[in-house]
Design a protein around this nucleic acid. Structure first.
Lengths: 210, 210
DNA sequence: GCGTGAATTTACCTAGCGGTAAATTACCTA
DNA sequence: TAGGTAATTTACCGCTAGGTAAATTCACGC
């Protein structure tokens, strides 16, 4: 009783398993709170483990973030690439892309926001890697958005930039809504998006009704 | 030399002026960094003053946020209400609303993100007040989005919720793009939005081109 | 010229975070 | 059953943030 009993010692959880637990918990935390607001103690608590163990397994906070970012980024990049087809002009591309994204994210939906985290320490490796993924995805999206603009006769490069921006954030918005409605399947989401797109077509007319 | 010279004492800045400086700096900081990442020392530094003075003028961090939120919220709510017309069915409502928002934000564009801050301490007064503004604005927007959906035959309430969500975030996205392009006037932005809306109409068709 | 009040700072407290070194416990093998 | 090693914790450091009490200096009216 003089010395309070220490809880140290192994719990029998093998190293690889623990590591995966940590990455999963961290992905959830980074995705919901954002890098800046995410805290290592909180992530450790999710796993039921000490902050120190987290450090020993995955290093610094930025290392941990990178370990979460890379698989998510690779996965999404692959799936979008596949959905766009070899020439990037497959039919119904936007919905195909959305469906592929929803499918890839199922099981850890917040992972999207790990990729598009705006609170990364500027100038760091994490920000650079994330920016790399953005650029790659934007390059894919650029084809589609340019297509849309050309159809309307606009040649303004700022229009193209803004549309790229809007599309990217639109996806984020849809995923965010999805996160708040866990019972929605990827297929249901895709169909909903199709309906929303149809509704959006009415934006160019006025709001009158009979 | 025994005692280091103190920089204390008045700088001759009248109380009201200082207060306005502080609110302006805080609005910029909250708007760009978000509540959680914003720091009182940093805000104080913008004004060229000590953290302590900030406290004495505007109280706690949440008080400061509220003092920034209320004028922004009131202003935006008023301008949107006016743009939608008495019955909420004025012609070209979406563009009219956007134009009014851009105009109201000119001079402190980031203020939009003070209103839609997602990092507020949950359960606090700040979150409650902000939610109040969202609800009021959403109520205004609900008419317009419902209109769009009805035109396409959808009656799913979740569709309506998602579309409301998308519209709200779309505005945020456009403002964010605008913040990054300071030379763009509110009128130029409105016209750009009109072109983007036209391009978005192409979303329902496939991505093929000739 | 001189106080008196307004404007401002210095000094300090507490709490939480990222991060590290050292100690502690449990499992496995011989 | 003794010892090594893998898994884990305790205890700590430095820093920054939010927040408060007390001291300090300037400006202005008399």
């Amino acid at each position: 009783m003089a010395t309070p009993p220490s809880k140290a010692g192994t719990k029998g959880v093998p190293r690889e398993h623990r590591r995966l637990q940590m990455l999963d918990a961290a992905t959830e935390e980074f995705g919901t709170r954002g890098y800046a607001a995410a805290s290592l103690p909180s992530i450790a608590a999710r796993v039921g483990v000490t902050k120190t163990l987290l450090h020993q397994y995955v290093g610094t906070k930025e290392d941990l973030y990178l370990a979460c970012l890379v698989p998510v980024g690779d996965r999404l990049l692959d799936t979008i690439r596949a959905a766009m087809g070899p020439d990037g002009t497959a039919p119904h591309t936007p919905l195909r892309v959305l469906h592929s994204i929803f499918t890839a994210l199922e099981g850890r939906r917040e992972a999207w926001f790990v990729l598009y985290d705006t609170t990364l320490p500027p100038g760091g490796e994490a920000a650079r890697r994330a920016a790399g993924y953005w650029a790659a995805i934007d390059r894919l999206a650029a084809g589609g958005t340019a297509e849309l603009l050309r159809a309307t006769g606009s040649t303004d490069p700022l229009d193209a930039d803004a549309l790229k921006y809007v599309w990217r954030d639109l996806v984020a918005t849809l995923v965010r809504w999805w996160v708040k409605h866990p019972e929605q399947t990827p297929e249901a989401m895709t169909q909903r998006c199709a309906r929303l797109f149809a509704a959006a077509a009415g934006l160019t007319s006025d709001g009158r009704s009979g």
